[in-house]
């Protein structure tokens, strides 16, 4: 991963070569604590989608429907309508996941996702999560708790980065104030 975004980067990555759907799902924090029986139920619910190179998975601003897990291929996450490397905020690979915020609500997507290689994704969607909550509350609670843990972890990372940025800004301000007036660039 070139750059890590607290929201889009995979901060949960584990390395393994097993590419079967249950093993891929098990490596994702959302499904990590599920039993074999529960995992079989999830396997029946998830969607398998194939994307060709350069095909858009979702576009920034569109209502989100759920999360994706990369079974094979690579996905670029970009801000804005341009999907070139310059606008990339994260590059995701096999076993990575993205879009999990859409499991909570249909708020518009905050970035665009595009497959940069022939890519196979496993999709898990909000309507299915709601159906699980209605039909099997125990499993629903497990999934919700796992999603909550992901969000908390991302929030902590964001908080930490915000603190670092604030500290850097304060340092910069102090530095600027300590510099002689004459050395400062003139405002136009």
């Amino acid at each position: 991963m070139k750059k890590i975004s607290a929201l889009w980067g995979n901060v949960f990555k584990q390395n393994t070569d097993d590419r079967s759907i249950p093993s891929i799902l098990r490596r994702i924090p959302v499904f990590s604590s599920l039993s074999k029986t529960e995992m079989r139920l999830i396997e029946k619910i998830v969607y398998l989608r194939n994307y060709h190179e350069g095909e858009v998975i979702f576009v920034e601003g569109e209502p989100g429907a759920g999360m994706y897990i990369i079974e094979s291929g690579k996905v670029r996450i970009c801000l804005g309508p341009n999907i070139d490397e310059e606008h990339e905020i994260a590059l995701l690979e096999q076993g990575d996941f993205f879009g999990e915020l859409a499991l909570i609500d249909d708020h518009p997507r905050s970035a665009t996702a595009v497959a940069i290689l022939p890519t196979r994704l496993v999709g898990f969607f909000r309507s299915d999560l709601i159906s699980i909550i209605n039909r099997s509350p125990r499993l629903g609670v497990k999934l919700q708790l796992n999603i909550l843990q992901i969000l908390v972890r991302r929030l902590r990372i964001t908080d930490q980065r915000l603190n670092e940025t604030t500290e850097s800004l304060i340092d910069l301000q102090i530095k600027l104030e300590s510099e002689p007036q004459a050395d400062r660039p003139k405002e136009k």
Partner: peptide, 21 residues
Amino acid sequence: KRALIGFLPNRYFEMSLNIHE
């Protein structure tokens, strides 16, 4: 539902899921 939505092109996939929901 899964079989029908599976037939949709990727571009309309998420939209169909949202509409169905």
